[in-house]
Amino acid sequence: MTDQLLERALVEEATKKSGLIWVRGLPVQGDAVSSQALWHVWHDGSVCLVGDGPGEQPLPGLVDGGGAVVTVRSKDKGGRLVSWSAKVVELTPGSEEWDAAVAELKGKRLNAPDGEAMPERWGRECRVLRLAPTGETASLPDGSLAAPPVSTAATTRQAIPAGLPRLLFKKRKRG
């Protein structure tokens, strides 16, 4: 019983203090979903997220009634602190739960394009999800979970021309 209380306290405190969590939706049809870094708020004993709308974070693999695994990192060291299982619940726009979650999310949303009209847009175009802890925590892996980068057409910067530093840093003659 004491271990369960300590685990629940660790989940709550670590998630509250972290501005970013890693969330992986559990596959419903066998489709593998990778972890996604998401901003969130901790409200009423669970994580609240908003996304899947224009200008908002994507929420791949998170379906109403499904499951998810949430990994929380340490704010000071950046290492994994705890991974916990959650049940995904999509909140209905206009419901009491939705209004309370949106009030919290609105205060944390940075650089919103529409300011005070944001809750109305979220109700029309986005999904607001609640990730409720199931009480299960996973043991942390020993190795790295780093994945290879996604292939892209973007390139890295080329080496600078050899003569450029001389042009930039040559002394100007005073006349």
Rank of each mutant, 00 (worst) to 15 (best):
A101G: 04
P113K: 15
S83M: 13
P58H: 12
W22M: 11
L145E: 15
P165I: 03
E97I: 00
A9H: 12
E96I: 00
Q57M: 15
I21Y: 01
T92L: 02
Q4T: 04
A86E: 12
L38R: 07
A103T: 14
G45T: 01
A103K: 14
R121G: 08
A153D: 09
V28I: 08
W98S: 05
A153I: 08
L140E: 11
A162I: 00
D76Y: 08
V89G: 08
G163D: 14
V23W: 04
W39Y: 03
T134Y: 01
G19T: 03
P165L: 03
T71E: 07
P119D: 06
V102H: 04
A100E: 13
R130I: 00
D31S: 09
A138P: 00
L62E: 05
R130Y: 00
G55R: 07
T156G: 11
G123S: 15
D31G: 09
R127E: 01
L129N: 02
L91T: 03
Q4M: 05
K87R: 10
G45H: 02
G65L: 12
W84G: 11
G19V: 00
A103M: 06
K16E: 15
T156Q: 06
A100F: 02
W84I: 13
A100N: 09
D3Y: 00
A86K: 13
L164V: 14
K87P: 00
G19Y: 06
A146S: 09
R174Q: 14
L62M: 06
R109K: 09
R124Y: 03
A86V: 13
C126A: 14
P27Q: 09
V72T: 12
R166D: 12
A132G: 01
P133Y: 01
E12L: 05
A112P: 04
G65Q: 07
L129R: 04
M118H: 03
V47D: 00
G163E: 13
P119K: 03
D114Q: 11
G135L: 03
D64K: 12
V82P: 13
R174M: 10
R109E: 11
L168W: 13
V11E: 08
D114A: 01
L6C: 06
R8K: 10
T152W: 08
L49I: 01
G163Y: 08
E7H: 12
E136R: 10
S85L: 13
E125R: 10
L145G: 15
